[in-house]
């Protein structure tokens, strides 16, 4: 298997706090990787480093052989990584269609726009996440689970090869978790790669192929879900949260 994304000895501090400490791991092409750790372990910081929201103090981020360390967000997105935020960031006065549309607009100001291709892309993304019926609604009229789907649709509409999902199941009911899991599975079936952040291990274990566990910004364990769940260090790290299986 080929690595799509490689993090090499990534380090980031905020003042005296070491948020990410010499963290290295690779994401393989076509896999769903669970990126897991207790609250405050540095998962979102790692996403922020990849997406260029922060610059790392040291270390490199390699995407498909290109060093993208410290690139601005829009460049990272245009080279094929999209992120789904933990909190929904939608345009309140725009319809679902228009919200997804922004993701299909090219960065070049004078680029020739193919309206039909763009509309097709918007509809595809909406269908994939199951928002096909809600295209003309305002986000305010959608239930919470549909807003999560809208976020995923927006990310997918940028045509990413790698999708970073930050706690996609937060605040969802069991049935809704099933639905969103289905969406993520469908996306992977199209041959693309997913990294999934969650502090809740049980929710993601069935969905992911492999797991990387971090704690206090350092890698604690890596392996299949079963291996990681059996790891005593991981269990210890999760003790405060009530153990791996109850977390």
């Amino acid at each position: 298997m080929k690595s799509v994304l490689e993090l090499e000895r990534l380090r980031k501090t905020f003042g005296g706090l070491v948020a990410v400490n010499t963290l290295s791991f690779a994401v393989e092409e076509g896999e769903i990787l669970g990126f897991i750790g207790p609250n405050g372990a540095g998962k979102t910081t790692v996403f922020n480093l990849i997406m260029g929201s922060f610059k790392p103090d040291s270390g490199r981020i390699i995407f498909k052989g290109r060093d993208i360390t410290g690139w601005r967000t829009y460049r990272v997105v245009n080279c094929g990584i999209a992120r789904v935020f933990q909190l929904s960031r939608f345009l309140r006065h725009k319809t679902v269609f228009e919200n997804i549309e922004i993701s299909t607009i090219q960065n070049r100001i004078f680029a020739r726009e193919n309206r039909q291709a763009r509309e097709r892309k918007i509809l595809q993304a909406a269908e994939l996440v199951g928002l096909g019926e809600d295209l003309w609604k305002l986000p305010g009229a959608l239930p919470h689970a549909s807003l999560r789907r809208l976020e995923i649709a927006k990310a997918i509409a940028t045509d990413p090869e790698l999708l970073l999902l930050d706690e996609p199941f937060a605040g969802l009911s069991a049935a809704e978790v099933e639905e969103v899991s289905g969406v993520i599975g469908k996306f992977r079936e199209s041959g693309r790669t997913v990294v999934l952040v969650d502090h809740n291990m049980r929710g993601v274990m069935r969905l992911v192929d492999r797991v990387v566990v971090i704690c206090f910004g350092e890698k604690l364990a890596e392996g299949t879900p079963a291996e990681v769940a059996a790891n005593p260090q991981v269990q210890e790290a999760y003790l405060a949260g009530g153990g791996v299986n109850d977390a």
């Binding site: 997406m51 601005r72 967000t73 829009y74 460049r75 997105v77 245009n78 999209a82 992120r83 935020f85 960031r89 939608f90 345009l91 309140r92 006065h93 725009k94 228009e98 549309e101 922004i102 993701s103 607009i105 090219q106 960065n107 100001i109 726009e113 927006k154 990310a155 940028t158």
Partner: peptide, 30 residues
């Protein structure tokens, strides 16, 4: 045009526009 759409989206949520692969600084200068 799409430029107007990007402008409006910047007004509502600049981070979301950047996450859509659009250089917001360039559009703001425009």
């Amino acid at each position: 045009s799409k430029v107007g759409k990007v402008f409006e989206a910047i007004r509502e949520n600049e981070e979301a526009v950047e996450a859509a692969g659009i250089n917001t600084a360039k559009y703001k200068i425009l």
